[in-house]
């Protein structure tokens, strides 16, 4: 078992998921609630990594993070071939999964509930925290699990921008590929099992969590008597 790769995979996935939440939730809320110029363009751009080959996303990132790119030029940050680049690549390919799901969830929240909260003394932030987010919780969570799983499994774009440096940028999917190339099937088996267990656990936990909170959320649709 390649413990370095497992640790790196978890680290990359955690940071990528955090990035996805911080960027994705406001984006989803914006897309669900406002009409603005360039909206379709923005939506298309966000969804593009879903349909592009990961190597194409990786190539763009390579240009973006490379020596002549803005990140080095303006910010003087060298991300290329670090685990940070892997996290960024994973975040970009996972982002559309959260945005699409959370956007639908936000759009499904009854606006009169938010209005009711306003007449009951809630500020906009409080409405978001106490009404909108709890009611959109299931869609957000579903999107988050998918996005995190996609980030965990990222291979192509990561290989392009972070390389395959054991102990520094080699995540589990890359390590599995290496192990198979070297015909080290004992290693490959262990890591494949670890990946499967991780995926299974996250899906199972999400389901459990959803069932625990399912009762009240169902009321949104079932107001019949």
């Amino acid at each position: 078992m390649n413990w370095d790769a497992l640790r790196l995979s978890l680290q990359v996935t955690a940071v990528a998921t955090l990035l996805i939440v911080v960027v994705g939730l406001p984006l989803a809320l914006l897309l669900a609630r406002r009409r603005f110029r360039g909206q379709t363009l923005l939506e298309t751009l966000i969804s593009l990594p879903l349909v592009l080959p990961p190597t194409v996303v990786g190539y763009y990132l390579l240009l973006f993070l490379g020596r002549n790119g803005p990140v080095v030029g303006w910010l003087d940050v060298q991300l290329l071939f670090t685990w940070g680049a892997a996290a960024l690549a994973s975040a970009i390919v996972g982002l559309p999964l959260l945005v699409l799901s959370a956007r639908a969830a936000f759009a499904g929240v009854d606006r009169s509930l938010e209005n009711a909260a306003r007449t009951l003394g809630s500020s906009e932030l409080e409405v978001l925290w106490r009404v909108t987010l709890p009611l959109a919780r299931r869609g957000i969570l579903a999107g988050l699990v998918l996005a995190a799983a996609r980030a965990l499994g990222e291979f192509g774009a990561t290989l392009m921008v972070a390389g395959n440096i054991p102990g520094r940028t080699q995540t589990l999917p890359l390590a599995i590929y290496d192990a198979v190339q070297n015909r080290d099937y004992a290693q490959a088996n262990a890591m494949v099992l670890a990946m499967t267990a991780l995926a299974f656990l996250s899906l199972w936990a999400a389901r459990r969590f959803e069932r625990g909170g399912a009762r009240p959320a169902e009321a949104g649709s079932g107001r019949s008597e």
Partner: peptide, 18 residues
């Protein structure tokens, strides 16, 4: 709205389902 001290009872009740 939050500072007007005006209560509002909606046609469809608008209770928080959660």
């Amino acid at each position: 709205a939050r500072r007007r001290r005006i209560g509002y009872v909606f046609q469809q009740y608008a209770l928080f389902p959660h």
